[in-house]
């Protein structure tokens, strides 16, 4: 069963917390992974791989560069999840 947007944001918050140590409550839709959440380009790959597994979605490398904010990622996963 597909995840709701809320569930996706919650899941992303847990992933970012695990990888970057940012409190889950600080992982909001408008936050930039790079500028606000201490997720550099290498750690972003980890976030993407963890999200792929959790939400049964494929996020090609070419699309990752468009995922600037948590909201971008949540929308992408919502549209493309299996």
């Amino acid at each position: 069963m597909a995840a709701t947007k809320e569930e996706i944001v919650t899941g992303l918050a847990e992933i970012v917390n695990e990888i970057a140590g940012i409190p889950v409550e600080d992982v909001q839709l408008d936050k930039s992974f790079t500028d606000d959440l201490d997720v550099d380009s290498l750690s972003m790959v980890e976030v993407v791989v963890a999200a792929e597994e959790r939400f049964d979605v494929k996020i090609p490398d070419d699309d990752v560069k468009n995922l600037k904010t948590v909201g971008d990622a949540a929308e992408y996963i919502l549209k493309n999840q299996g």
Partner: peptide, 10 residues
């Protein structure tokens, strides 16, 4: 392959 850490080389 996909699960190999991007931090491996550093």
């Amino acid at each position: 392959v996909r699960r190999v850490s991007p931090h491996t080389v550093p």
